[in-house]
Amino acid sequence: MKGLVRAEFRRLFKRRVTRLMLGLLVLALGTIITAFSLASHKIGPSELAAAETKAQSAYETQLRYHEQGVAECEAAKARGENVNEQYPPDCGREFGPQREQFDAEWFLPYEFNFHDEFGIFISVFAGIVALAAYIIGASFVGAEWHSGGMMNLLLWRPKRLSVLFTKLGVLLTSVLGVSLALGTLWTIALWLIGKFDGQTGKMTQGTWESFAISGARGIGLVLAVAAIAYGLASVGRHTAMALGVAIGAGVISEIGLRIALDIAGVKFADRYYLSTYAMAWFEKKWTLEDWNACNFSISGECKPDVFVVTWQQSALVFGLGTAVVLIAATWLMRRRDVT
């Protein structure tokens, strides 16, 4: 068994698709880090002073336009023209801009806040890594079946389920390792952006724990996605099977179903879309609102009906999906004739 594990690790990292996807993954994550590093600026006294100057300048510009407008209105009035349609009463003299309306904060550059924004970046990271994991997972077994490599391997290792699950184990271990390594670098890079080009915010142990749990959920989704891709490509004995199902599921769930349920006027139709469960998974819960319903509160306010999708429900949906695909792959691996 050790030999097979070693061979499969070597095979996975020798494959062009794996190397290409890892390269693209690092490139994509690196581009995001670089872009945010360039976009974020630490706010200090000089930036605040500059923003204050810009706010004052904007106020003065608007004041000048206003005074110019009032003057034109007065002049028109003096010529005996009817200005009531064009200008407010008293030529709008009392509607002039106020200095406090020009907040200096609007003129500050973007400043990354690690504490407030890292949660979103965990989702972005998980999404990008999941895409790469899907393609690598599908190709790892799909291309092997399609090229005849799997048949060759079965001539050496006739215990089919052992081969199927060793390859899956190698894939998931590798995806986990890469996710942890890149996730650590991702966290460090964003924290450094916060430290030197923005704010880290008030980081407590609780905040770090919350990020760790979000990160674990993100990696969990990445692993599920890799396993589904592997299972689908194994069922179809071709990488295209997994890619086709992904596109098909996307089209059916996010476009076809959306149109059909919209026409049918189904309440809380979003609960039938996979993306809702992905959001709930990352955000812990996702609240759907039905604005056609009006529930009066004590204060007489109109409140919509709500439907909450929890991360536990998401876990059930994605877990069941992964289980069904892997059971199908296992059953076919046991039963099918390799021709």
Partner: peptide, 15 residues
Amino acid sequence: QFFPHFSAQDTLSLL
């Protein structure tokens, strides 16, 4: 039938 992007050396070494 062999994986086309591996060399003969790699193919046999993996086996």
